[in-house]
Design a protein around this nucleic acid. Structure first.
Lengths: 339, 339
DNA sequence: TTGGCAATGATACTCGTATGTCAATGGAAA
DNA sequence: TTTCCATTGACATACGAGTATCATTGCCAA
């Protein structure tokens, strides 16, 4: 009984080839204690010979469980979110849970479409990034019967569970550190924060802290780098910024790669860090500690957020945990020589 | 008619709520030209009111098409493969194809399990990385009825289609360049290449080229950095290598991050590049051109490999193309100041 | 009024796996 | 021989969406 390309091998084929009833084959696979050992061996041998692979979509239709987890990330080509996704995969794989991945490009509409599709595909759980959703997405998630994790930030209004860290507080702490260090003209460099609650909270944390310290906050206090947040964006921004008459004495980048780009630009252009300008980043990517002048930054752990998000989902699906949870992964100011 | 959490809304619920037959609702959705406009509006209104989302697993069981594409990457926490995956997603998303993602950790056995699961879930196509598979995986892929893409390398023995570049030739070219540049003691720094045909081909390219140039090739010609191929691995390796009595005058790293780490270590430790030691990398990640001494490297395009792989799969599934194809994305020697 | 066509409904399936329930069979023990 | 139990099979479903085929109804034009 040879295998045929393009020919789906079903349970019916197995039962015919083994000379057993359909129900016996099914029992041998699903309730082996009810089937004689010799019969089970016969089933197994037949399965191997004709290459039967169970149809999991048919099975999930009956069992009402798909063993699929839907994950939306804003981008993948950022090592923080790539680490996050890999952390998720690390937990799902040994438990034979399949990741459905969607990349939203920071578009709430794309996130909505992804979530709707996960639901249509009967995903058992959904992991999304942040709290910026369309109303339709909120509704979908609220009515979704499985666990939902909103990751990468903390918030009071949550759908179900949260795994993240306080972006606002992290920005407050770093800004306060820069103020306490005596920097007088602190400029915040952010990216487009519409539909990005993480970026918006960071921005608000900086602004609130500057105001509370009696610092004037105007248009020149906030600069935007080009999106996406790449090293090149940081380089380009430094060119423009350093061409100004009035230069800040400290720059707080709300993302890590542009901060690295800024560091490298200074190095190449004879601008002394932190003597002429101090630089702080947000993310602590692996290069940052190894730069000629190591970068001060907010250290966050994308992989840990992924691990915890997936673990929380698994525990919920296995019934180990029944209540939604809030996991604060935390952050840390990693002070180095750039400030 | 309110939506209920935990209550699956089926087509039957829609037909009851709309006071129409099941078949009419189905027709309104699938063959709208056969249904009166007023009836269609009624169906649409009811769907919105009670929040019906079609069950795509049920649909795919009937239609024999899942609109899911299985993708195996060796790791995600490497920007080359993250770019690859994002490139794939970029093509799939607008066409409403769902990515199933698995991370193999360079394990052929994990790849096999992932492929088997994709087949069980009725994935329409499968994209894998490289040519290092278990026999079982080869058999699964050979018998798989949908398109298969092996990405990231070129090879004579292929399963179906290929999207990649010639790792062997790239390594040959870079080694030859180093030889022509007059470097006398070239050392190749690679990672563990078992189950990794890309790494194995790069290694073989270097060795063959050195031998053809009459260079002696022995144990000290090949060094391994710690896996995974991180910046830190490059830093650690440089510490050990530069503590040696006999130092090479050129290092060819077969991965980019360790090369960057090596560059940074030299910068911080007063080793002049390329005067004391030349350094070449493989991958041209974004930081490499911005280092204090910009890095010479083999430039490859992970995103383009992803875009092409996904496009090829879509064209095959849409019937635009019927034959397997080989797409050579190519590579380029990006010569900079480190050599 | 008759005929034709558009629209809708009823019936009976399909897809592949899983399972409840009752029946049949064979073997072992009392 | 009878009873009991393990094992296997038959039957009839379930899951939710899709569809072939025939029937029915209503409306409009000739």
């Amino acid at each position: 009984m040879a295998e045929n390309k393009n020919k789906k091998v079903t349970l019916k084929d197995v039962s015919k080839a083994a000379g057993l009833s359909l129900i016996t084959v099914s029992r041998a696979l699903r309730q082996p204690e009810t089937v004689h050992e010799k019969t089970r061996e016969k089933v197994q041998k037949t399965i191997e010979e004709i290459g039967y692979i169970p149809n999991l979509t048919a099975r999930s239709l009956v069992s009402q469980r798909s063993d699929m987890i839907g994950v939306v990330v804003p981008i993948l080509a950022s090592s923080l979110f790539a680490d996050f996704a890999q952390g998720i995969s690390h937990i799902l794989e040994p438990r034979k849970q399949q990741m459905l991945l969607a990349v939203s490009d920071w578009s709430p509409k794309k996130e909505e479409e992804a979530v709707r599709t996960f639901i249509a595909r009967q995903a058992d759980a959904i992991i999304v990034t942040g709290f910026s959703h369309t109303d339709a997405t909120r509704k979908l998630l609220a009515n979704f019967s499985g666990p939902v994790v909103e990751a990468w930030n903390l918030n009071k209004q949550v759908t179900d569970s949260v795994v993240g860290f306080d972006n606002y507080a992290a920005a407050v702490d770093m800004t306060r550190y820069l103020i306490d260090r005596g920097y007088e003209d602190i400029v915040m460099v952010g990216g487009h924060s519409e539909h990005n609650d993480q970026a918006a909270d960071r921005t608000r944390g900086v602004m609130d802290t500057l105001r509370a310290a009696g610092r004037s906050v105007d248009e020149s206090t906030v600069i935007e780098f080009e999106n996406p947040a790449t090293i090149d964006a940081g380089v380009n921004l430094m060119k423009n910024l350093m061409a100004r008459k009035k230069r800040p004495d400290a720059l707080f980048f709300l993302a890590e790669l542009p901060a690295q780009g800024a560091m490298l630009w200074c190095q190449s252009n004879g601008v002394s860090v932190p003597d002429e300008v101090a630089i702080a980043g947000f993310g602590d990517l692996s290069m940052s500690s190894l730069l000629p002048v190591p970068l001060t930054t907010v250290q966050i752990r994308g992989r840990a957020i992924g691990l915890q998000s997936a673990q929380l989902v698994i525990d919920r699906l296995d019934g180990e945990v029944t209540e939604p949870a809030i996991h604060d992964i935390g952050y840390r100011l990693q002070i180095r020589q750039s400030t």
